[in-house]
Amino acid sequence: MKEVVLKADKLNKYFYEPTKFQVLKNISFEVKKGEFVSIVGKSGCGKSTLLYLLSTMDTDYEGTISMTGEKLTGKSKNDLAKFRNEHIGFVFQFHYLLPEFTVLQNVMIPALKLGKFSKKEIEEQALAKLALLGMEEHAHKLSSRLSGGQQQRVAIARALINNPTIIMGDEPTGNLDKKNTQNVFEILKNLSQTYHQTIIAVTHDTDFAQNSDRIIEMSDGEIINGESAK
């Protein structure tokens, strides 16, 4: 039995604009260490909303979320920011690198924020992560000079820099062409299999979902399939 890293218990969320509307209905599930989970469903089914709850960035919900045994619900924003910094790595649909910084700096920033290692060690780690993603030769370029696929790979390296408990992806391949989609998926799959990295990704891409370990399917704010692990 593998250890549970993420536990969502009876999550309910409402939108109040324009009228009161329940986006998430009584959602409960667990994610085990090393699992590669895809959350799928039609637009508006609440899958991105769910991911943002799990990411700790959205705190306006009912129910509880725990990660690595630590209850996150009810913590202060600053504590959550610290927790995010250490335990969660993000990959967004639109790469979202800081355009004024070099690739290497972009990867290093979350680690510098965490402040666990010296700058020199962090630089070595960042270069190692970039090498893992085949991006070390671009390390000293400005991030805005890279192509979309390259930027997404840098974003994954940034997500990995603090060796997070979970990597969360919001449509990580949503903005990429087929070749780059394939490429990014291979990287995530590799991370999951080789390094037992836990990954949760929201996606529209059925191929992407089919090839992951587990699919959580949502519809109208409820999980209709994949509540428990295979």
């Binding site: 990411s55 960035m57 924003k77 600053n78 920011a81 610290k82 927790f83 995010r84 910094n85 250490e86 969660i88 993000f90 967004f92 979202y96 690198l97 800081l98 355009p99 920033i109 979350p110 924020k113 965490l114 940034r158």
Partner: peptide, 16 residues
């Protein structure tokens, strides 16, 4: 604003 959002997502607090 966009940069602020990224920084906050990667764990920067509002104080930072």
């Amino acid at each position: 604003m966009k940069d602020i959002a990224i920084l906050k997502a990667t764990g920067f607090t509002s104080g930072d």
